[in-house]
């Protein structure tokens, strides 16, 4: 195991024990790694930069929600690369369907909410967040875009810290589902 893998495994173990700082460091290093993994494969399929970033974000969410599947005797790199590969395949399927199915045929079937989700583009700050409603939206927005702590967020919305944590976790699950809903 090289230095990078040693760092990643150490941060991952700390993150699994609840260390947010170690988790942030890990995810910040994983993002460019994932970008490289996805870009390398995406070019052959004609995925653009925005699509690549979508896959990176979907992969980060999957890493988080499925982090219980990491075997702590195994290196982190191949595990996250495998998740990215799965998410890239999903994105390609999604895209294939978007191209082959005329959108007119779908406009009557698709609920309005899903139309809003169309094209989860990065750099359009509120686009992804717009799939969240109510408290989930407020809490995720406060912590992500505004960089607030859990405690500050709780005070701001008059919630308990526990309620903020629950809303945050559910919000992340909703975001992950929003990506997957393209497939169905």
């Amino acid at each position: 195991m090289n230095d990078r893998e040693r760092d990643w495994a150490f941060w991952m173990k700390s993150a699994l024990a609840g260390d947010a700082g170690a988790y942030r460091r890990l995810l910040s290093e994983l993002a460019p790694f994932l970008r490289a993994v996805v870009r390398g494969r995406a070019a052959a399929y004609g995925l653009g930069a925005a699509d690549v970033e979508d896959v990176v974000q979907e992969t980060l969410l999957a890493i988080h929600l499925k982090r219980g599947t990491w075997d702590d005797r195994q290196p982190v790199g191949p595990w996250v690369a495998a998740i990215a590969r799965n998410k890239l395949i999903d994105a390609l399927r999604r895209r294939g369907r978007r191209i082959t199915v005329p959108i007119d045929d779908l406009s009557e079937i698709l609920p309005a909410e899903e139309q809003e989700e169309e094209g989860l583009r990065p750099h359009e700050a509120d686009r992804l967040l717009s799939v969240l409603k109510g408290r989930q939206h407020d809490v995720v927005r406060s912590i992500s875009l505004e960089g607030a702590e859990i405690g500050e967020t709780a005070k701001k919305f008059g919630m308990s810290e526990g309620a903020v944590r629950v809303a945050l976790h559910r919000g992340l699950q909703t975001l992950s589902r929003a990506y997957r809903s393209f497939r169905e």
Partner: peptide, 14 residues
């Protein structure tokens, strides 16, 4: 959402 912002939200859910 920027990827960096998403990472903030995920890390807070550690």
């Amino acid at each position: 959402m920027k990827t960096g912002d998403l990472i903030e939200a995920i890390a807070a859910d550690a």
